[in-house]
Amino acid sequence: MFIVRIKQVFKRYQQESLFIDALSDINLGISRGEFAALVGPSGSGKTTLLNLIGALDLPTSGKIWIEDQEIGRLSRHERSHLRLKKLGFIFQEYNLIPVLSALENVEYVMLLQGVGEAERRERAMNMLREVRLDGLEHRRPSQLSGGQQQRVAVARAMVSEPIIVLADEPTANLDSNTGAALLDLMRNLNETHGITFVFSSHDPMVIERARRVVRLKDGQIISDDSDQVSL
């Protein structure tokens, strides 16, 4: 059973008079519990694909379903709601809200979801403990190292129990040891919580640890080491 289905998706950008085909004829399915990497050089379309899966952007043609919802049919408001309920994001630049503490950053999504105060706090603390940041919960992003910030981002993405966490180059700004530790942590969370992870990356460490590697080049999938190709 796929939780994400992508069918004949094209994405074309227009830059002034120039058309750029970021993605062409993408067909892909992602199942629950996967730990998959979208791999390719700069400009291969991996971030674009991730944004489409994340309902942050819409395809020029083709269809994408998240569970049973086709994102092309959703309004801006409904896509926002979908992201809030079902998706988690981790960005290359961490992108924590700078005025909120680590704990508050993790609480933020639950706040939007209307989770009660006590529960919110407890779940956020538990999550921070899982990413081994207990004791640092009251620090602001500017008072945390890059690795620590990215771990807050992981906690923030996972705390609301999304069906899938999308991570765009999560290790690109980290040194190799910190990056490796973060990946191990995510893999661990994937295994213990059964949460689906999809990365975009060109970091060999990520590829090494991924259980499925989808290679992209010039907007097309050139290899997929999973056998679940047919939709």
């Binding site: 994340g54 942050l56 801006r76 408001h77 926002s80 709601h81 979908l82 992201r83 809030l84 309920k85 998706l87 994001f89 960005f91 992108n95 809200i97 933020y108 999504v109 939007l112 923030r156």
Partner: peptide, 9 residues
């Protein structure tokens, strides 16, 4: 980022 995480406009 706030919008990406589902914050309503």
């Amino acid at each position: 980022v706030m919008l990406a995480m589902g914050t309503e406009p």
